[in-house]
Each structure stands twice: as C-alpha cells, then as structure tokens.
Design a protein around this nucleic acid. Structure first.
Lengths: 77, 77
DNA sequence: CTGTATTTGTTCGTATGTATT
DNA sequence: AAATACATACGAACAAATACA
C-alpha cells in the first residue's frame, strides 16, 4: 500500500510516480481532485514538505493544476 | 556582482560578507527583511545549509534577528 | 453575513547521509 | 581527521485563499 521505501530513490520521487500512475491508470480522471496534502501525509506517512515536492514535480510536468485554498486537480478537464 | 567563488574562503563566509556589505551600505535598513533562505538559494545558487550558516554568523554578530515562520530582519529597528 | 475550518503557500529549525577537500 | 557543501527529510510557525456551517 503506502509503498514508499527507504533507499536510493528519494521519497518525493517515489510519491510523484505513484500519483502519476494513478492518473495514467484512470483512477484519477481529468478534473478530479488529488487528495489533499494532509490526506497524503496520512496515507503515505510522509512530511508535508515531501508531499509538496512530489506535487510540485507533477505540476511542472503539467499533469496537475493547483489552486491555493482549494487543492490540486488532474489537468485536462 | 557579489559572486560566490570557489576557493580558499568558504562560501558561507563569502555570503555573510556580501550580506553584511549590503546592510552597511544601507541597501538593507534596520527593520528591513533579509531575503528568505529560498530566495538566497536561488540568487547565489547555494545549498540551504550554506545559506543558514552565513545567516547564523550574522545573527551571532547581532547584525540580524531571525523569527521562525517569518524571516530574518536587519537589527536595530 | 460572520465566523470557523480546510487547504495551499511560505518561512525558519533540525537532523542525517554523502561526497569532496 | 576535520571542515565544507549538497540533498533529502521531518517539524513547526505563520500567512492567505477558499469553503462551509
């Protein structure tokens, strides 16, 4: 489940890959909300900064869009 | 400009001198905020730890005051 | 309309590991 | 061996935008 492991691959990269996989698998469709930072903290037992780094990476790739006070959403809606 | 160079003088000392110079020149007046650690990272292309070491030196000299969650400010406001 | 709660944004504090000098 | 420097990661406080009762 929360398959983030210690090792050579940074946790924030692992999380970014997991989220991307969920999107590419269609689990999260365009326009759908990404779980909040707090929810992801709980699900993966990671610090908020680590969560935010993963989300920032996906945002820079154009995979998601983030709005302050609202949340992040799968791009392409 | 105030460029950090590789050499015998540690980068954190070079940065501390640059910041002190800005303050003594009046570029940064008492009460003014010092650029954030993130901003200084970008400006000088240094790791955060190096930035913090420079700031810590100025703080110990009483040149600046730092508050968590807010930032560092030129002392003497 | 008025607060309160949620959510993202930004900042500093601390610790660990690795590599280089 | 020791100091320097980078990257990663967790924690905490402060701030602002949005949502909601």
């Amino acid at each position: 489940m929360g398959q983030i492991t210690d090792g050579p691959v940074p946790k924030y990269r692992q999380l970014a890959e997991i989220l991307r996989a969920r999107i590419e698998a269609g689990e999260l469709a365009p326009g759908d909300p990404i779980p909040s930072e707090t929810a992801l903290e709980a699900e993966f037992d990671l610090a908020r900064g680590t969560i935010r780094k993963a989300i920032a990476a996906l945002r820079e790739e154009g995979v998601i869009v983030t709005t302050r006070g609202k949340g992040s959403y799968v791009a392409g809606a």
